[in-house]
């Protein structure tokens, strides 16, 4: 479906081989192509603009290397800059306390509940005992969904079907987790729009009340331009300290991740790559940069050069 940026860039830089320096004039066409490619990958307009400004400055005056096609050299710069912006990585969670609370939040249908299960499974493998908490009292059968997932993973699920107050549910769950010797409590909150004041206030109350050690925003990998607005609003309300991007098992280029990283500045912790509870991976900026550029294997290209 997408033209290969690499091929197009070859054309744009054809006349440049082995000749002097990159200038604004001889890069113009190539810059335009990269800009368009990033927009098609769903990187937010403003982030693209800023990125293009930075990359132009970076590339200006750069000597065209003899060993490489100028187009390859240029895309290498772009790729490296994307990697810089997406990183640094932070593998593993700091779980130093007796009881560590992780709160999942995000828009409706992003993949929060599934990710709670995946995270619990990951922790189990590390011999850490997690508890899942059904704090979504809104979506029909959300509690059942978490129970089914909990059963699949083999972890305790706390729920209270009679309680209408998610804040109280979270509070009670933490007490229960302490009593049961669970080291990690994972709160599955209801999906909500960042502009829904009432529901955002509720999330802030949970945040104040149980003081989670980690607040993760779960973002759908197919998200478009809205990512900046919603992630910005969640970050403003909750001070996120991690992002999980889901549904990257498909063919989405996932440019929204760059937007989310740009507005929150917090590390991207995990990516979701399937519906099964094993389908959670640590984040690697290298692969993601190539994917956003629509360029499978830029990294390989540069290792050879």
């Amino acid at each position: 479906m997408f033209d290969s940026l690499q091929d197009n860039l070859k054309g744009a830089f054809k006349t440049l081989r082995g000749k002097g320096k990159l200038t604004e004039a001889n890069m113009r066409e190539g810059l335009k192509m990269v800009e368009q490619s990033l927009l098609e990958a769903d990187v937010s307009y403003d982030v693209v603009k800023e990125f293009m400004h930075g990359i132009t400055k970076e590339a200006l005056g750069e000597k065209v290397m003899l060993a490489l096609e100028p187009s390859e050299q240029f895309i290498g710069l772009v790729n490296q800059e994307l990697i810089n912006l997406l990183g640094p990585v932070e593998d593993g969670l700091n779980l130093s306390k007796d009881i560590n609370i992780i709160m999942m939040c995000g828009l409706q249908g992003a993949g929060k509940t599934t990710t709670c299960g995946k995270l619990a499974k990951l922790l189990m493998r590390q011999k850490v005992k997690p508890m899942l908490v059904a704090a979504d009292l809104q979506r029909p059968a959300a509690i059942d969904q978490l129970h089914v997932i909990g059963e699949q993973v083999g972890v305790e699920v706390y729920s209270d079907r009679d309680n209408k107050d998610p804040v109280q549910v979270c509070r009670d769950a933490v007490a229960k987790a302490k009593a049961d010797g669970c080291q990690v409590v994972i709160l599955d909150t209801a999906g909500r729009l960042a502009i829904d004041e009432e529901l955002m206030e509720q999330l802030k109350t949970i945040d104040r009340d149980v003081q989670p050690d980690h607040v993760f925003l779960v973002v759908d990998g197919m998200t478009g331009q809205d990512a900046v607005r919603s992630a910005g609003a969640f970050h403003e309300a909750l001070e996120l300290n991690g992002v999980v991007m889901t549904k990257l098992d498909g063919d989405t280029r996932g440019g929204a991740l760059l937007s989310v990283k740009h507005v929150t500045g917090v590390p991207i912790r995990f990516i979701g790559v399937g519906e099964h509870l094993d389908d959670l991976e640590f984040f690697r900026p290298e692969g993601m940069a190539g994917r956003i550029l629509g360029q499978g294997d830029v990294v390989g290209l540069f290792e050879e050069a």
């Binding site: 769903d42 828009l107 331009q225 809205d226 498909g250 440019g255 929204a256």
Partner: peptide
Amino acid sequence: TAGQNALSQ
């Protein structure tokens, strides 16, 4: 909220 991937969908 989907971006350009919706075309592929």
